[in-house]
């Protein structure tokens, strides 16, 4: 069972270490952790995807709250959020395969961001499921390199619920 936590933290040196360290020493599993500045430069937002049951989630939340630089923790309800992941994939391809790959990319609303004689780089955003489906399809051509940001997410506005 995965849970998405949105955590606001004071943007102090070492805050990422404090959070990552907490997860490892308490034996919690992080699926992904994403951190970036917010509209307020003193505050960063982390999106943490945690693996575990409700009990684990409760402990994770409580232990995070004990960190002095953690301001707020919200568990995001998967039904009322926008959740995105960004992926860059460099796929091996021959000249013949190029148009087929571009077609696949189009289907996923992905973009071709680099073209080389023997490879293409694709940029895609979306939910984890979508990106996994895309990766799966491209695997047949041979994936040369691959990088993913991990999930970032925000709650939808009230009206959209």
């Amino acid at each position: 069972m995965t849970h998405i936590l949105s955590v606001s933290v004071l943007n102090k040196p070492g805050v990422l270490t404090r959070i990552a360290g907490l997860f490892s020493r308490r034996n919690f599993n992080i699926e992904s952790l994403n951190v970036g500045k917010t509209e307020n430069p003193e505050i960063s937002r982390m999106t943490i995807v945690v693996n575990g049951d409700e009990k684990v989630l409760e402990q994770v939340t409580k232990q995070l709250h004990k960190l002095i630089n953690v301001l707020k923790i919200t568990e995001l309800d998967k039904n009322s959020i926008v959740e995105r992941d960004l992926i860059l994939i460099r796929v091996k391809c021959t000249r013949k395969q190029r148009s087929e790959i571009i077609q696949i990319a189009d289907t996923f609303r992905a973009q071709i961001v680099d073209v080389a004689p023997d490879s293409l780089m694709i940029e895609a955003t979306g939910t984890e499921d979508k990106l996994e489906a895309l990766t799966e399809l491209l695997r047949d051509f041979g994936i040369a390199e691959f990088v993913r940001t991990g999930t970032v997410a925000l709650s939808r506005g009230q009206a959209a619920k």
Partner: peptide, 14 residues
């Protein structure tokens, strides 16, 4: 020492 003592303090400062 702030890195080393992180898991064994309630909080630390540099």
């Amino acid at each position: 020492i702030t890195g080393i003592s992180l898991p064994v303090t309630k909080h630390n400062f540099l």
